[in-house]
Write a protein that binds this DNA or RNA. Structure first.
Lengths: 204, 204
DNA sequence: CAGAAGTTTCAGAAGAAATTGAAAACATCG
DNA sequence: CGATGTTTTCAATTTCTTCTGAAACTTCTG
C-alpha cells in the first residue's frame, strides 16, 4: 500500500501546520488557532472537532474555541453531512479570498478603533489651535496626528477597495503588473493556474 | 503661562502613546516597544534613554532594549548632541517611510522564512508526484502548497516594489487612484499636505 | 420526555513573554 | 590611567496569554 507516501504526506502536513502556527504568533494570532487553520487548509477536506483534537493533540475546549474564532474570521465554514450529527469544518481554499478576509478583519478590529482614538485625541487640543494658533508645539503635535490620521484613512480606503464584493483590486493589480505567474525559475511541476483554482466554490 | 495647554498636550500625547501601544500588541510587537516609538513620533524631537524611562515609567533595561529594537527596524535613529555624551533618539516622521520600513522588516522576518519552509515541505513529497502522479491526495496537497507559495511570492514581489529605493509604488498608486486627500467630509483644519512632508531623510 | 450525541463555557493550571534591576562592559575625559 | 557617566546584558521575577478538563448546556432521536 501507499504507506510510505501516506507517512510522507502526514509529515509534510505536520510541518506545514507547525510553520503556519509559528507565523501566526508573530501576527498576534494564537498558535493553536493558526495551527487549526493550517490543518484545515492543507487537508482540504472537512474535519470534525475530534479530528482536530486528535491530530493536533489539543483539548476539546481549545479546539472548540479555535474553530469558532476561525468561523468569526470568516476563513472557515461549517459543513454538515447527511445522516451525521457532527459538525465538520472546512477552510477557505482560495488564498486570495483568505487574504482579503484577513485584511478585512484586521482593519475592522485594529485600524478602525485606532482611527477613532486618533480623532478623539486630536479633539483634546484642536479647538485651541484653530482659535489662535500660537503654541508651536501644539501645532506641530497636531500636524503629526493629522499625518497619521490621513495615512490610516488612505489605508482604509485602499483596503476597502480590495475587499469589496467586486473587489479583487489587489489581485487584479498583481496580475496586470505582472507579479503573478512564472517569475523566478523555480521548478514548479504542476498546476499552472494554482493561485486561483476554479475548482473552488466561494466561501459563505 | 501656557500651563493649561501644556497639560492638554501631555495628556493627548499620553493617549496617543497608549493607543499605539495597544495596537502594537495586536501585531506581535511588544507594548513597550510600540509605546516608545509612539512617544518619539508624537514628540518629534530627540529624546534620551532617561527621558523615555521617566515619561513611560519603565526600567532602564527595558528602555534600552526597546530603543535598540526600534533602531534595528530602521524607524528610529540615533542623534548626537555636541558636548553631550548621551545618545538621543528620534523617530522617522514621514508615515509612508515608516510604513515601508515596517513592511520591509516584516517581510524579511516572517514571510521569507515561511516561504523557505514551504519549499522544503513541498520537497518532502514532490519527486514522488512528478515521477508518477498516482496518489490523488498527494497531488491535491501539493496543489494547495503551490497556491500558497505562489501567493507568498506575489506578495514578496509586490512589497519589494513598494519598498525599493525609488519605490513609492503604493503611495503613488494611492494618489493616482484618488485615495489620498479630502475624502469624507471630516473637519480637518490644517496641514493640507500632511501625509508626505518633504522633510524626510530615509531612515537607516 | 428521557437519553444520547455533540458543543460551549470557564475557573484554574500551565506556559510564554515582558520587565526589572543590578552588575558588567564600554566610552570619554582630564 | 583612573574617575565618571552611559549603555548593555541577563537571571529572576512579574505579568499576561493560552490551554485544559470537567460541568453545563443545546439539540436531536426514538
Amino acid at each position: 500500500m501507499a504507506n510510505v507516501e501516506t507517512k510522507q504526506l502526514t509529515e509534510a502536513q505536520d510541518r506545514f501546520v507547525a510553520a503556519w502556527g509559528k507565523m501566526g504568533t508573530a501576527w498576534g494570532i494564537s498558535r493553536t488557532m493558526a495551527e487549526v487553520h493550517a490543518l484545515l487548509y492543507i487537508t482540504g477536506e472537512p474535519l470534525c472537532t475530534d479530528d482536530v483534537m486528535e491530530r493536533l493533540q489539543i483539548s476539546r475546549g481549545n479546539a472548540s474555541m479555535s474553530l469558532r474564532a476561525l468561523l468569526e474570521w470568516g476563513i472557515v465554514e461549517r459543513v454538515h453531512r447527511r445522516g451525521d450529527r457532527k459538525e465538520y469544518f472546512q477552510a477557505e481554499q482560495d488564498v486570495w479570498v483568505l487574504f482579503r478576509a484577513i485584511v478585512r478583519e484586521r482593519m475592522k478590529r485594529e485600524v478602525d478603533p485606532m482611527r477613532a482614538s486618533l480623532y478623539e485625541i486630536r479633539d483634546l487640543t484642536e479647538d485651541r489651535v484653530s482659535k489662535d494658533a500660537k503654541d508651536p508645539a501644539l501645532v506641530a503635535h497636531n500636524k503629526r496626528l493629522d499625518s497619521m490620521l490621513e495615512f490610516l484613512e488612505t489605508m482604509e480606503k485602499m483596503s476597502a477597495s480590495f475587499v469589496s464584493p467586486a473587489g479583487r483590486g489587489l489581485q487584479a493589480a498583481a496580475k496586470i503588473l505582472g507579479f503573478v505567474g512564472g517569475g523566478r525559475a523555480e521548478p514548479r511541476p504542476s498546476s499552472p493556474g494554482g493561485s486561483t483554482p476554479d475548482s473552488e466554490r466561494e466561501a459563505g
